[in-house]
Amino acid sequence: MARRPANGQAPAQFALDVRGLTTSFYVGGKWFPAVRDVSFALKRHETLALVGESGCGKSMTAMSIMGLVPKDAGRVKAEAILFEGQDLARASEAKMREVRGDGISMVFQEPMTSLNPVLTIGFQVSEALRHHRGLSRRDAAARALHILDQVKIPSAKSRFNDYPHQFSGGMRQRVMIAMALACQPKILLADEPTTALDVTIQAQILELLRELKRETGMAMIFITHNLGVVAELADRVAVMYAGQIVEIAEVAELFARPTHPYTEALLRSIPRSDRDTAELYTIPGQVPPITRMPPGCKFADRCAYRLDRCQAEEQQLAPLAKAPAHAVRCWRRTEETQPEMVVVDA
């Protein structure tokens, strides 16, 4: 990936610039990184998808950016997390509270449990407005009502004083989105916002997010393990494995030329209706636990193209010669011609 000037200022086209983010957890008396040296830049108005299996550190990356990693269990370190001329990696907790829910918002995976059951949705949506914008109760309510209309809650006015349990899962996720968008954030972090929903509702929520993004011009980091969603929604994709970004590219480029063996395997494991397959492809083996990470490539154990040096030395995330915007953490990027995929029996 091209080096950026390290003068502490994010280039103007970036909404967010994350450099060298490492988040560690205290397990059995030692610190183990769950997110290791993650760097990426989010352009303005862009949707960046963070993709990977459960536990690959994609949610933790978002939580780290938000400053929401519990202090007693986790430790977040970064060279810099630049947002609007501030370095969030060095911001005080008070400063982070100003940014959260205002400049950067987050939508979580579980709409059923992410809303407070004893507070009305009207209260919960207007809360951030009252806090960040200092609006009066009445003004905040008027604005909140407008946003609830915007996320297409039917008859929002009459439902303003309803409680979360009176809404369906999809409607609750709309409320969550309304809450996140209340202060018109520059960046929305969407952490698997559709995973817990029915497929038809998923499509509606994705459509809503796309529409809202177009209307507001915000940038979005969309965390998912669903590559179908990625193809539909994202401009760029970062594939994460074992806490690292292993490949990052424009969405069309990634789907056309998946270069990291893990990305390739992920794409192969999408069930397809247009091919006659008896079995679904699965990636053999398991993600190593964070307490027992191998020194070299973290994917080497499961990799079909493994060489001896893979397990000894760690590869850097570096751009492909023929596509500078496409970076991969694998020796394969240097190969002129990529070998045909070899299927390994699990």
């Binding site: 929401l68 959260r100 829910g101 918002s105 579980e110 809303l115 809360e127 809450m179 996140a180």
Partner: peptide, 13 residues
């Protein structure tokens, strides 16, 4: 609970 995380994510004091 998740909703406490949500409240923090809103930047509430």
């Amino acid at each position: 609970e998740d909703y406490i995380r949500t409240a923090h994510a809103k930047g509430l004091p």
